[in-house]
């Protein structure tokens, strides 16, 4: 019988703790598949964040070093500069990357560190229970913006990919999503490209993944997937934001 689907080698046999419909488990699998495909499991080191993905080391069967909240890019900098031949990627949520870790992210990008950031944007603080994130949309309710995010009181959703793309140190930034099969394939391709750029010493790469959080969005998984296309993508339009090698 032909095998049509299997668990990637770079994932352990553990069952994901993520909620039903969550985008993390899909993204984990995509990263693991790309690592397998590129044959780089032996040199890959992941840096999980504080947030829902804090337990990523339970799932990835590669070396991992947990970073304090928001410091993924600083930790990755220290690792990559020490081990320039390894593939170093950080895996960070929106609160981690775009709030508490903005400075670390911005400056690692500006230094053009040859690392890859997988940026999970689900417009909410997931693990702590659905508080307002820097990426929470205007009008979107959260436990700390109960009537909906109000620009005057709470500011605007932060588009980190566009901001980082302005820095000369960044080489490839793409915004993807994991809400539809087509988008999942696109995300997989983007991750592979980012890792390949890193292997080729091109410089700082980031893949932003719009990721559904049905639990905190208080939606069914199907509605959550639809909401990404219908609402979230209006504020965070998917696509290649920067690619110094042009269309690839």
């Amino acid at each position: 019988m032909k095998k049509v689907f299997g668990k990637p080698e770079s994932l352990k046999d553990a069952i994901f703790h993520y909620c039903a419909g969550c985008g993390h488990s899909i993204t984990h699998r995509l990263i693991a598949e790309v690592i397998d495909e590129m044959g780089i499991r032996d040199i890959a080191i992941g840096i999980p964040p504080a947030g829902c993905a804090v337990l990523a080391y339970n799932y990835f069967d590669i070396d991992m070093l947990e970073a304090p909240h928001g410091r993924g890019c600083a930790v990755a900098t220290g690792m990559k500069r020490t081990l320039p031949d390894k593939l170093i990627f950080s895996y960070q949520g929106d609160g981690d990357l775009a709030a508490i870790g903005t400075a670390e992210t911005f400056h690692a990008a500006n230094r053009g560190e040859n690392i890859t950031v997988i940026f999970i944007n689900n417009a909410v603080y997931g693990m702590t229970g659905g508080q307002m994130a820097p990426t929470t949309l205007l009008g979107q309710a959260s436990t700390t913006s109960p009537p909906g995010r109000n620009a005057i009181l709470d500011g605007y959703p932060v588009r980190m990919s566009e901001i980082l793309a302005l820095l000369e140190g960044t080489k490839y930034i793409e915004r993807c999503a994991v809400n539809t099969p087509a988008n999942i394939i696109r995300t997989r391709r983007a991750i592979k490209k980012a890792f390949q750029y890193q292997m080729d010493d091109v410089g700082f790469t980031m893949v932003e993944v719009l990721s559904q959080c049905p639990t905190n969005w208080k939606m069914t998984p199907i509605d959550a997937c639809k909401w990404i296309d219908e609402v979230m993508a209006l504020s965070f339009p998917p696509g290649v934001i920067k690619d110094i090698k042009g269309k690839g």
Binding site: I47, L65, A67, P68, R71, A74, V75, A76, T77, G78, M79, K80, R81, T82, E104
Partner: peptide, 8 residues
């Protein structure tokens, strides 16, 4: 945190 990464 860079020290942390480099040390690891």
């Amino acid at each position: 945190n860079m020290i942390l990464g480099a040390s690891a």
